[in-house]
């Protein structure tokens, strides 16, 4: 099913996720309905166990929901097979995780190139885009390095480069600054916000980081698997404008 006449990148309808932990039913998400529009820079916040990561996993097709519906870029995820979901993520979503983001045996260039290799992008174009995006994240000259020879901040920049290189409709970032020092974290957030403003790429964060919250245009607060608050931050919106 396609959702037409809609500017939504993500649309969820009564999303529920229940799983069992040692035989005990845990309601991670309780009927979440929401929409994320193209070009948003949105943060999902909430205490540990509130369902932030589960929500990101559900809307990206990494996990299956128990009830409800999720559309991503107009596609109903529950209708897709595992392979279709893989291809869909490859083509429409960029991921940034908290840590261990990169494939350690591949160089920076190969890590960034990875998704384009899966997409079958020709070599010349791959190289051009990789070098362009590495320049964008300030890592020109690091192409041949292995991730282990980079700092945490540099590794996250590579992760950002990998997430945006295929020009996805949506970038999902799960606690991207959790392991970074304050200075590096601010630099990374600013960089992502610049990318959002320059290219109109949609960013959705799950975070505890107040610096991201401050810079997010929209803040969705989750508590016990429910949306407790969903608000546009005037200050951040103003800064973006």
């Amino acid at each position: 099913m396609n959702v037409q006449n809609n500017n939504s990148v993500i649309l969820t309808e009564n999303v529920t996720k229940e799983y069992h932990d040692n035989g005990v039913a845990v309601h991670a998400l309780n009927g979440i309905s929401m929409s994320i529009e193209r070009g948003e820079f949105t943060a999902i916040v909430g205490p540990s166990g509130s369902g932030k990561t589960t929500f990101l996993n559900i809307i990206s097709g990494l996990d299956r929901l128990t009830q409800g519906k999720t559309w991503l870029a107009g596609k109903l995820l529950s209708e897709m097979s595992g392979r279709e979901l893989s291809d869909f993520r490859r083509d429409h979503i960029g991921f940034i995780f908290q840590a261990y983001n990169l494939i350690p045996v591949l160089t920076v260039e190969e890590n960034v190139e990875y998704i384009m290799l899966l997409q079958g992008v020709p070599k010349t174009e791959r190289r051009e885009r990789v070098h362009g995006v590495l320049e964008q994240v300030g890592l020109e000259g690091y192409a041949d390095r292995l991730p282990t020879r980079l700092s945490g901040g540099q590794q996250q920049r590579v992760a950002v480069a990998r997430a945006i290189v295929s020009r996805p409709a949506l970038v999902l970032a799960d606690e991207p600054t959790a392991n970074l020092d304050s200075h590096t974290a601010v630099g990374l957030i600013e960089m992502m916000r610049d990318l959002n403003q320059e290219s109109g790429m949609t960013f959705l964060f799950s975070t505890h980081d107040v610096r991201i919250m401050e810079r997010a245009r929209r803040l969705i607060v989750l508590e016990d698997g429910r949306i407790a608050r969903d608000e546009i931050q005037a200050a951040a919106a103003g800064r973006q404008a």
Binding site: S60, L62, G82, R83, S86, D87, R89, R90, D91, G94, F95, F97, Y100, N101, L102, I103, P104, Y114, I115, L118, Q119, R162
Partner: peptide, 16 residues
């Protein structure tokens, strides 16, 4: 495991 999770997340097919 996490690395495999990331690889699957970014679009690596199950068969791959």
């Amino acid at each position: 495991m996490f690395e495999f999770g990331v690889m699957r997340a970014v679009g690596t097919r199950p068969l791959a």
